[in-house]
Amino acid sequence: MAPADVHVPRHVAIIMDGNGRWARARGLPRAAGHRQGAEAVRRTVRAAGDLGIRYLTLFGFSSENWKRPETEVADLMGLLRHYLRAEIAELHANHVRLRVIGDRDRLARDIRVLIENAEATTRENDALNLTVALSYGGRQEIVAAVRRIADEVRAGRLAPEAIDEAAFARRLDTHDLPDPDLLVRTSGEQRISNFMLWQCAYTEFHFTPTLWPDFGEAHLGEAIRDFGSRDRRFGAVAPQAR
């Protein structure tokens, strides 16, 4: 657990970046970086539970990542299959609920089945809510929500005047998740790369130069301490400044 004087964010989202650079710096193929990145996922999930984080969302594979070389995509899908087969028992034993957001239609059928089984197995768990974004893009998610609303309005199930922020949010992939309090990006890059664009309107950002394969509990703790130093006003004026 985190120290009593540290304010732990309820929901942490992480853009896992730097696998390729980690491998290149060691003269290894990119696949080796992705394998080490999978180890970092295991460490971070355990650390999140130990630190008292309730929701953890990991950006695993973006809608733009499909443009990568076929061999690299195949390696990533192979790692995903391995994770879904090998890690679910441990997640379940630790009362972690797993869910996946993103465009599943682009994933192979066997992967979709593994995801469905993993979600069903862990559905009742409540220690940590782990969400993995796969084949996911924030803009695509927003467009899909707009289409859902348009379909409902056209069918007469939704009045235009009933459309507000809450109604829109209910039609996003993350409709049953709180917005992230903290977004962490590894590798030194300082952008959010089409990740949770709607949900991160008031999220605090923490950028670390650490490459994802090297990320672990100490780095997550550093991000949480940084978060605890922020003055979150959500557009209001601090009481002492009024």
Rank of each mutant, 00 (worst) to 15 (best):
W212E: 14
A40F: 01
N117D: 14
E161T: 11
R191P: 13
Q240C: 15
E72F: 08
V143W: 00
M16P: 03
R232W: 09
A47C: 13
E39R: 08
M1S: 05
A40Q: 02
R154Q: 11
G52I: 11
A25T: 10
G235R: 02
V143S: 10
I101R: 01
A93V: 05
E90A: 12
A150C: 09
T174I: 03
E222N: 05
L58K: 00
L158R: 00
V73H: 02
E124Q: 08
E119F: 08
D17C: 07
D173M: 08
D179W: 00
W198M: 06
G52F: 12
L128F: 04
A40D: 05
A159H: 10
R21Y: 04
E204T: 03
V237Y: 09
D50W: 07
A169E: 00
T208R: 10
R85M: 09
L91S: 02
A74Q: 07
A241L: 15
A159Y: 06
N129S: 13
A218P: 12
A118S: 10
L28H: 10
D103A: 09
F61W: 01
I163T: 04
D231P: 14
I192K: 00
A120T: 07
R35C: 11
T122S: 01
T131I: 06
G102F: 04
V237L: 13
D164A: 15
G33Q: 06
W22K: 04
I111D: 11
A93T: 05
D226F: 07
R42G: 03
V184T: 06
D176E: 08
Y55T: 11
R123D: 01
L80T: 08
S193N: 01
G49S: 13
A89E: 15
A166N: 12
R233M: 14
G228K: 04
F207L: 09
F168A: 10
E70G: 11
R154H: 10
R10W: 02
